[in-house]
Design a protein around this nucleic acid. Structure first.
Lengths: 210, 210
DNA sequence: CGCTTATGGATACTGATACTATCCATCACA
DNA sequence: TGTGATGGATAGTATCAGTATCCATAAGCG
């Protein structure tokens, strides 16, 4: 398959494919001569994955690169790989919540984790994000949402459990790792859009007239 | 409160505040003379909200503007407002899934909605995103994840229901609308980070050694 | 009163990101 | 044999989210 065909197969413009090659998102094709390379099925798959991450999940190119690199290093333990993907997916932010809201958020989240018996690395990037989010919600006066953190955690635990099960069903380790990454990233998009739909439906029922 | 104090109170640099004023994210302060304005508590709140949307939820500035405009138009019915926020939050994308995956995804999602009795506008932006996501997951060979769409929907329905309840508790319509927007956007961040934490915990338990 | 600092408003500049465009010396193939 | 595609390199572009600079004026202090 030449680059033009790859482009046709995936609907990605040739210059964009070249760009991804340059950036190291997509492995180079097999060179048969200095200006002739051939691409295979893995390239089609990989390219589709790249586009899904970028367009659907809005992951920045640099982050996609990191994620794919971790995917391609099969020496790394799976749990490490997940950690790497999580880190890549969690932006660093510096936020303005009031100090007491932040303190309250920290204890609330710590308690939640303890209550559920979750084993969380204190350095986990998602931990900081969660605390920040709770703190901001409090600062913005949304205490009644935050009060039900537990309900959220219940629901989340539910689908996370089966996600891991579904993903574990993969026979080879490589497939497993890929599934984990895809599941982590696109799963979020899936959940988010389901949630918006559910909201729309419920809001339609409840607020037709307000 | 002058702009410098507003800056100190929210930890947002003065030039950035000026930028938000220019862009119409933040209403102008009350002018006492041609170059002297005073800002109040609403500005502090609004600015915090803006930063939360931008930094935590990664919402682009232009989208924040749209959302806030809809928030400030109290003539608009609540359901319309939510639709507007959803539209602003859903990026338009053009994706490469295989045609049969896309067809399968469309029927699956349509069935899901019918089964649950959800009332969804066929134009709902989240609908297209959901179909795309399912289609891409299928194309990428993640059928076992997609097979449990229903499980996801269950969990999502669970917290959406109580979110709407929590938010409905707001006394005034303005507060309600604000809560809805904050809940919609920051709720997603909350759920996403909870999910990452749950994943980390389960993955730690299961794959310590792989 | 005078002097330093801050302010509102306007305009210009910057750095990052994600591509596009152009060029060129091959190469495939009709 | 010539027309179009290709790999590789380099340069250009559009958008985004701020920063920086300037200016005339105003506030706060000593």
């Amino acid at each position: 398959m030449r680059i033009g065909e790859l482009s046709k197969a995936t609907d990605v413009p040739v210059p964009t494919i070249k760009y991804y090659l340059r950036e190291g998102l997509l492995p180079a094709g097999e060179l048969s001569s200095p200006n002739q390379a051939s691409y295979g099925d893995t390239h089609v798959r990989r390219l589709r994955l790249i586009r899904a991450l970028i367009e659907l999940a809005q992951v920045p190119v640099a982050t996609v690169k990191e994620i794919l690199e971790s995917l391609d290093s099969d020496t790394e333990p799976l749990h490490e790989q997940i950690g790497r993907a999580h880190r890549a997916l969690t932006p660093t932010r510096r936020l303005s919540a009031t100090d007491d809201a932040r303190a309250a958020a920290t204890t609330q989240v710590t308690d939640l984790i303890a209550d559920r018996g979750w084993s969380i690395d204190p350095e986990a990037p998602a931990l900081a994000t969660l605390i920040d989010t709770v703190a901001v919600l409090r600062t913005l006066g949304q205490d009644n949402l935050v009060a039900h953190l537990d309900t959220y955690a219940d629901a989340v635990e539910r689908f996370t459990q089966f996600e891991i099960d579904a993903v574990t069903a993969n026979p080879t380790r490589d497939q497993l790792a890929e599934s984990v990454v895809i599941g982590t990233v696109l799963g979020e998009t899936l959940i988010a859009s389901l949630r918006l739909l559910a909201q729309e439906s419920i809001s339609a029922d409840r607020w037709k007239n307000r």
